[in-house]
């Protein structure tokens, strides 16, 4: 990362820590804010957070790797998550997953070459009554069919 990028991140994280406190309990909210702004938490940011919270970088890394919604590597602009819970599977989530994968030409946990979409599995959205459900960025889509799912991802920028 270039020096300017580093300085920008230092400043941003410094502000966050000032706002949220430098205790361990502020770690997750800080990481979420960084992710919101930069879409992933790069190595440098992890080390800055660790430094300011007086913990070790590897502990920050450990937290990021534990939570499925935090990333330590760049992802696509849009993240499409398909539920792989058994209820969604009964209602055809596997077919949707295959259709999405074929449409985008990528496997799950991969990103399209243009960086438009990342496909992921998720364990359960708590939407079993409206299954199958998929999560596109922050928005949940219920009772999707193959056709609606494809339509939704074609609309993504």
């Amino acid at each position: 990362m270039c020096e300017t990028g580093k300085l920008l991140r230092n400043e941003f994280i410094g502000e966050l820590v000032k706002k949220m406190g430098n205790e361990r309990k502020s770690l997750l909210p800080i990481l979420q804010e960084i992710q919101k702004k930069y879409h992933y938490i790069d190595e440098h940011s992890q080390q800055v957070v660790a430094d300011l919270l007086n913990i070790h970088p590897v502990e920050v890394n450990s937290v990021i790797s534990f939570y499925a919604f935090l990333y330590d590597a760049p992802r696509g602009r849009n993240i499409v998550r398909v539920c792989k819970n058994i209820v969604c599977e009964f209602h055809g989530s596997k077919g949707i997953a295959k259709a999405l994968s074929d449409e985008l030409g990528i496997e799950f946990d991969q990103t399209t070459e243009d960086g438009r979409v990342t496909l992921e599995y998720a364990n359960c959205f708590g939407m079993c009554d409206k299954s199958p459900s998929i999560l596109i960025n922050d928005k949940i889509h219920e009772k999707v069919s193959k056709e609606t799912a494809l339509k939704l991802i074609r609309e993504l920028k």
Partner: peptide, 17 residues
């Protein structure tokens, strides 16, 4: 603070930064 457990559940392993 070199080592920590990363990932979760079955995928857990001890790793460096």
């Amino acid at each position: 603070g070199v080592l920590e457990a990363i990932n979760r559940g079955y995928d857990t392993k001890i790793s460096t930064f």
